[in-house]
Design a protein around this nucleic acid. Structure first.
Lengths: 146, 146
DNA sequence: CACTATTTGCAACTAAGTTGCAAATAGTAC
DNA sequence: GTACTATTTGCAACTTAGTTGCAAATAGTG
């Protein structure tokens, strides 16, 4: 994991600094989107300053190693771009119940056919609904009520 | 337009107040998403206080007359729900050049097939790219450079 | 016209993200 | 290893979208 982070930084010609490596390691470890705060939390007490985290993420965005998504609140969520197609990110699913977001990486989707004159750079699909976990929890509650 | 706004308010049993009517009129008049600030601007000097605008929009969201979208920044954008299907909003297109967002209402799209256990409530598609206007402007510039 | 529940505007607040600047450090040259 | 410089980091102060509490205003009703 550490090696992969070093490699990624090298590939875009950025200096190998501990804050950057820690941020990349965290993004490599997870299978979902993370906010600045969640990244800091996961790194722990020695996490870089929030300014540094934002600045690093912006650099990685510029280099196209990271993608940013705005979901159901005013905070931006980040993820490594390695599971995204060139023109299209995988769909994101947010559970209205537990508020957790899942990356639906194994799914095929097609690009929308745009009216004449428009050209795509990136398509994102965002789905709100109920996740399997909350689905079964609700059913259990219903049974309990009876 | 005024009549339609009165009608909409009545249909969800909210009091007919001038701020609410002005907000609905503005939403009826436009063919794109608006932020709180843009709504206030369009109403003009007698626009309701921003608190009132946000509160009204929240009420209309609850009644499902209005939809909210988070696009490429931290500000929420609002629109009347009347051009949306039950499970799916029309796609939104944001031009990376002029930053304007267009509602692609005349387009058919299909719901993503979700993995077992997930259930959809609402699907949104967001596309970044270049709009017809900026496309031709860029071409013109290229010609000028030659 | 009077009454009351609802709505509005204002001022103060919250929280995500940004900026400027001085101190620390990675990469390089010797 | 040591010295040097451009880059990076952390901190404090700031910006901005949106929220909250509360007193004044008003829509709907009798």
């Amino acid at each position: 994991m550490n090696h992969r982070a070093t490699e990624l930084l090298g590939s875009v010609h950025l200096r190998q600094t501990e804050p950057r490596l820690a941020i990349l390691r965290t993004l490599l470890k997870t299978d979902t989107l993370l906010t600045q705060e969640q990244i800091a939390e996961q790194i722990g007490p020695d996490a870089p300053n929030k300014t540094t985290i934002y600045r690093t993420l912006t650099q990685l965005l510029d280099k196209n190693l990271v993608h940013q998504a705005y979901l159901d609140d005013r905070t931006s969520h980040f993820e490594l771009a390695h599971h995204c197609g060139e023109r299209q990110c995988h769909p994101h699913f947010t559970c209205v119940h537990c508020k957790q977001t899942h990356c639906l990486t194994g799914i095929s989707t097609q690009l929308v056919e745009l009216p004449k004159g428009f050209s795509v750079q990136r398509q994102q699909i965002h789905i709100d609904g109920v996740c399997p976990n909350c689905q079964t929890m609700n059913k259990t509650k219903e049974i309990e009520r009876v």
